[in-house]
Structure formats: structure tokens, C-alpha cells
Simulated scan of single mutants.
Amino acid sequence: MMVAPAPDAAHADVSRTAVSIADVLAAQSRLDGTVVRTPVGQYPDIDRAAGTTPGTTVVVKHENQQRTGAFKARGATNLLLSMSDAERARGVVAYSTGNHAQGVAYAARLTGTACTIVMPDDPNPVKLRAVLDQGADVLLQGATFDDARAQATALAAASGARLVGAANEPAIIAGVGSLYLELFQQAPGLDVLVVPVGGGSGAAAAGLVASAVAPGTEVIGVQSAASPAAHDSWHAGTLLERANTTRAEGLAVGCGFEVTQALMRRHLADFVLVTDEQISTAQQLYLTGAHTVAEGAGAAALAAVLADPERFAGRRVGVVCTGGNASADELRRALGRADAPAPD
């Protein structure tokens, strides 16, 4: 099914919203001192779980240690720092299941910008509390990301505030690109990089940066099979909407977005799906094998590697733990996975 026209989805003018490696380099400079250069790590338990073939290694980029606990702080901060004083004076409105909300709220507090966040009803309490702690106003609206998007769009139109989407925003993609510049500096020689996809800013940025600085690295996107809109849009070559029922909030998006889809079509080698159960298994491995808290979206890239060991056999694989803002219920579910790989 085609997506109905939407202000920040199907009707983006890609010709006016292109992102280049020069934009990413400018964003990296602009963000200096406002975001963390997060570490990378390699863990024997994760390497063993990824496959028995000698030489298979997994390098983890720990964006769960980023300010706000997720990579979204990079893009939102770059966007707000790029705005004029007059634009910031009108305030911003964003919609999110949580991590984009925290990123925008953090950037708004940093720049003294009034900020309203629309989140779906019954949000992750960890993420809601963090948004409120940053001083943003929060409105709960609807059951899904897409319901929140519609309400935020209407609110911005009525108030004159700047609507800050999580996908069709070149400055956000450029800011996220700083993550991948760091990764390729910290872990050169990656054969493949696996990136989780919700709206697609991360995978769009990863593909863009890889093509410029690591053209030999294959970039693969991954999404939950319970919310496959971005995956299906990429494979179909057109924007689609799909059921949106994943537990992984950062992947819970029901439609494709034109700007990120255009970049992903240009730069991704493949786009795969994993189940929510496989994501929970990867979360458990992060906890037990890397002493790392990963929320569902943050574990999706590792889940894809664990689900297809033949594909990654003997390769140097990069994965990004994109966020660590997991609720207590989510962590209990992950630790209860009976079929999760256990350390030897």
C-alpha cells in the first residue's frame, strides 16, 4: 500500500534535501564538545556467538554511551545548532517513541529553545522521564509513532514552531554521519557494517559515509519483521506503509521516508529483517557477553549477525549499539530468553 501524502514523508523534495560528505564533516566540527566520541569494543563471547568460522570478529560501536543514551543526540544537536536565532525563537516540535525525543530535548536545552515533544501513549518510562528531565513539554497522543507524527505536524502548523522529524532532515542525517566517521577511524578495515533502521537516518548516514571513506565496506540495514515499512519500501523502490507492532521502540515506524530511502537505495548493499525474539536474544548477549545495556533497536544489528552466521563468516563486522534506554520490563524479558547463546 502506498503511503498517503504526508508533510515529512512522501512529499519531501529530495533534490533540495541532498546530504554530502562535506555536510557530515561540517557537522562533526559543529558538534565538537557537545556530543561524546563513543568507544568501540570487541568481545570474545560475541565473536563466538557470531559463528564458529575462524576470523569472524564483531566490532561494537557504543552509542548507548552517548549523551541521552542514544545516537539521536548527534543529529538533533546538529540541526538546532544550524538554525538561526530567529528560527529557534519560534520553538521546535518533535515526535518520537523516545530517543529522537531525548535528542531534540537535549539540543533544545543546550540552545535555549522552547521544545514540545509528542510521544505515543504509554511510552517507555525511562525515555519519558529523560525527556521531562531535559525540560521539554510532553504531549502523549495515539497508540503509535505515526499517530504522534500526525499530532506533532498539526501542532507545529498551528503554533509556527519548527517541526523536527527524525527522518527527512538533512541536518539530522549529517549529524548522525559523525558517528560513522568516528567508527571508520576507530575500526578501519571493516568488511561489513550492519545498521538498525526505523526512519532510516542511521543507515542513510552510514551508507553515505562508507561510500566516501570506506568504499570497500558493505552496509546492510536491519529492521524488525513486526514493523517492516522501511525494509519493504527499500526493496520495492517506492514508499510503503506497513503494520507497526514491534516491541523495539526505535524500529517502530509504519512508513518509509523519501530522503532516507533515497540515500539507502543509493548506498545499502542489502536490507534484512529480524524477529523481536531474535532482538531480545541479542540484548541478552550484550548484557552477559559485553556487560552492555542495549535497548531493542540498539541490539537489532547484532541480532542480524547472529541470525545469519554463514553470511558473516570470516568477516570483520561492525555493529552499532545505537541506544541503551531499555525499560526494566524489556531487560527482564531479554534475560529470560532461554534460547539465547550462552558464554562457553
Rank of each mutant, 00 (worst) to 15 (best):
G41T: 12
Q42F: 04
Q42T: 14
Y43D: 07
P44V: 13
D45H: 14
D45T: 13
D47R: 10
A49N: 05
A49K: 02
A49T: 06
A50H: 03
G51Q: 01
G51S: 06
T52L: 14
T53P: 08
P54H: 06
T56H: 02
T56S: 07
T56M: 05
V58A: 07
V58C: 09
V59L: 11
V60Q: 01
V60L: 12
E63V: 06
E63Q: 11
N64H: 07
N64A: 12
N64G: 10
Q66L: 10
T68W: 05
G69F: 00
A70G: 13
A70I: 00
K72E: 05
A73P: 00
A73L: 03
G75T: 02
T77C: 11
N78F: 07
N78D: 11
L79R: 15
L79C: 13
L81A: 09
L81M: 14
S82Y: 09
S82L: 12
S82K: 09
S84C: 12
D85H: 13
E87Q: 15
R88N: 05
A89P: 10
R90E: 08
G91P: 06
G91N: 11
V92Y: 00
V93A: 07
V93K: 01
A94P: 04
A94D: 08
A94N: 09
Y95M: 11
Y95Q: 08
T97P: 04
G98W: 00
N99G: 04
N99I: 02
N99R: 03
H100G: 02
A101R: 01
A101N: 03
G103T: 01
G103V: 03
V104L: 06
V104A: 03
Y106Q: 05
A107V: 09
A107N: 09
A108G: 11
R109T: 01
L110E: 07
T111H: 08
T111M: 09
T111N: 10
T113P: 07
C115S: 06
T116Q: 10
T116I: 03
I117M: 05
I117C: 10
V118Q: 01
M119W: 05
P120T: 00
P120A: 00
D121Q: 15
P123N: 08
P123R: 04
N124P: 00
V126A: 09
K127V: 03
R129S: 15
R129I: 09
L132R: 15
D133K: 15
Q134K: 12
Q134Y: 15
A136T: 01
V138M: 04
V138F: 02
L139C: 10
L140R: 14
L140E: 04
Q141Y: 15
A143V: 14
T144I: 06
T144F: 04
F145K: 05
D146M: 07
D147T: 06
A148W: 01
A152C: 10
A152E: 02
T153L: 13
A154Q: 14
A154C: 09
L155C: 10
A158G: 14
A158V: 11
S159W: 04
G160Q: 11
A161F: 07
R162D: 07
V164D: 05
A166F: 03
A167M: 08
A167D: 07
N168G: 01
